[in-house]
């Protein structure tokens, strides 16, 4: 299992648990959708997976690391093996598209040549070769999200976490993003976990769907 939760409880203020007594297991190469109503705790689960919040109770293991007792250095290493996509893209606006894509590569210590060649490959992959030296503010929302996905794919991580990746996009841009995430899962064997309130129709790969109801995560079969 790449991720395993047993009786997990999550909370932001360490008082009232948003996620209660939840257990789930995610295998390598799974494509997971987590859905639920607004404020149900979808993003809270995702935040706990990249260590932004610690479990209030129960156990959460990510790549065999106990997220409750994770050390700062372990967390940094874990994040180096993750790609994260947000609804608001979280691109660095002072950096060009190319520099944003290179960011995880540089953090992982890739050489300049490798960063450059990988960025070129990814820019072609997300069809943004012409925007290489543009700044995020000069791109549309769909293009910015493609940059964000390219950045998440750059260092070939084991896990991609996506929080409402198509929440701000039109249908065409959304379908491009879904195709990119599908490709990452199918061609690169990356485990993809997507939090969304809108599961795409005609999603023609095998996926697992979890739904949050009253603080608990249930799998829909």
């Amino acid at each position: 299992m790449i991720i395993e939760a047993i009786n997990l409880e999550l909370s932001y203020d360490k008082k009232k648990a948003i996620i209660q007594n939840t257990s789930f297991a995610i295998k390598k190469r799974d494509f997971i959708f987590i859905s639920g109503t607004s404020g149900s705790g979808k993003s809270t689960i995702l935040n706990s997976l990249y260590g932004d919040i610690k479990p209030l109770a129960g156990q959460l293991m990510v790549k065999n690391i106990d997220m409750e007792n994770i050390k700062q250095s372990q967390l940094m290493n874990l994040r180096k093996d993750m790609g994260i996509v947000f609804q608001d893209y979280k691109l660095i606006k002072e950096k060009t598209v190319e520099e944003n894509i290179m960011l995880p590569l540089q953090i992982n210590g890739y050489t300049e040549e490798l960063c450059d060649s990988q960025a070129t490959k990814l820019l072609e992959h997300v069809r943004l070769g012409q925007a290489r030296y543009a700044y995020p503010d000069q791109l549309s929302g769909g293009e910015q999200q493609r940059v964000s996905v390219a950045r998440a794919l750059a260092h070939n991580p084991s896990i991609i976490l996506a929080d409402e990746p198509t929440g701000n996009l039109d249908d065409y841009s959304a379908s491009v993003i879904w195709n990119l995430l599908k490709g990452a899962n199918q061609q690169l064997d990356i485990t993809v976990i997507v939090v969304t309130h809108r599961i795409p129709v005609n999603f023609n790969i095998n996926f697992r769907h979890f739904n949050i109801d009253e603080g608990k995560l249930y799998e829909n079969y």
Binding site: Y50, M76, N77, L78, R79, K80, D81, M82, I84, K90, L91, I92, E94, L103, P104, I107, N108, R151
Partner: peptide, 16 residues
């Protein structure tokens, strides 16, 4: 602050 937060999300240390 925002740039540092994004970099840390990708595993960068504060020193980096």
């Amino acid at each position: 602050e925002n740039r540092i937060y994004i970099m840390q999300l990708h595993g960068a240390s504060l020193l980096y």
